[in-house]
């Protein structure tokens, strides 16, 4: 079993590589020092600073609002897309749903920037961010919903039809209850993606509106203070909760992500 021991050692060091950086961020958020260099003593000072940082709170509010609106819309459209992809062979739809998920984010970001300004003549802000977030979230919801539908016996729908159920009745009483966990998981995924998104928001936000990731970005670009550690820790806690919730509703959803 000497080989097994070596495999364990390699794997454990990869786990350490994954967790050590985040642990350092969390630990330093409680460190009573301006510098992220050595441990001085325990403090909650940086969380207090955070609570009084108006700009940060405003950004957090924006992020929540954007995530709520865009994930609701993306859940609706993504569920439809997932159902359509499962039931009908519409090549164009599959292409349009899956490509934004697979391509580098920057491409969607700059093309939407061009589109909003050049074609819609829109002032970049809340609306443009929400529209952009819906666009990139639809695919994730659709993939999760389609995966769920793929695991459903086709005979259930046939039986409903044979019993004389209309399209709507079949949807309402058979399809919807079956896919609901996937819909909820997809919605939570869309919410998380929206709260977390930096790249696409960076290009579609303009100058007026800040989101949490945009605020963090400008903070780490200008001056790193432990306040960033504090907000990072809180953000970790939030997304962690959402991911745990999502995995409760659809255990396979997380695996479908990659």
């Amino acid at each position: 079993m000497r080989r097994g021991w070596r495999l364990w050692a390699a794997a454990l060091s990869v786990y350490a590589f994954l967790y050590l950086p985040l642990a350092v961020v969390v630990v330093y958020s409680f460190n009573d020092s301006r510098l992220n260099a050595e441990w001085i003593g325990f403090t909650l000072r940086w969380y207090e600073v955070l609570l009084h940082d108006r700009e940060m709170l405003l950004a957090a509010g924006n992020s929540l609002f954007i995530a709520l609106v865009s994930s609701l819309a993306a859940t609706l459209l993504g569920t439809m897309a997932g159902m359509a992809m499962h039931r009908y062979r519409i090549r164009m739809l599959a292409f349009m749903v899956l490509t934004p998920v697979a391509m580098p984010e920057i491409l969607l970001g700059v093309s939407l920037l061009l589109f909003f300004i050049q074609v819609l003549n829109l002032t970049l802000g809340m609306l443009s961010i929400v529209l952009a977030h819906i666009t990139f979230s639809i695919g994730f919801v659709a993939v999760i919903v389609r995966a769920r539908l793929a695991g459903v016996e086709e005979s259930l729908f046939e039986a409903a039809r044979d019993c004389g159920a209309s399209q709507w009745q079949t949807f309402r009483h058979i399809t919807l209850p079956l896919i609901l966990p996937a819909v909820v998981a997809g919605g939570l995924m869309a919410f998380t993606l929206s709260i977390d998104d930096f790249v696409i928001t960076f290009f579609t936000a303009g100058v007026g509106v800040q989101t949490l990731p945009l605020r963090i970005y400008s903070m780490i670009k200008i001056a790193v203070t432990p306040e960033v550690n504090a907000v990072s820790t809180l953000l970790m806690l939030l997304t962690l909760t959402l991911i745990v919730l999502a995995s409760r509703f659809a255990p396979d959803a997380l695996k479908g992500k990659a």
Binding site: L22, I216, I220, T239, L254, K257
Partner: peptide, 21 residues
């Protein structure tokens, strides 16, 4: 799950962590 969990932190936070390290 332990491999995915670091994803629970924001992308920028994961990059920022290396600024410290």
């Amino acid at each position: 799950l332990l491999v995915i969990l670091p994803f629970a932190s924001n992308f920028l936070v994961r990059v920022y962590a290396w600024m410290i390290l």
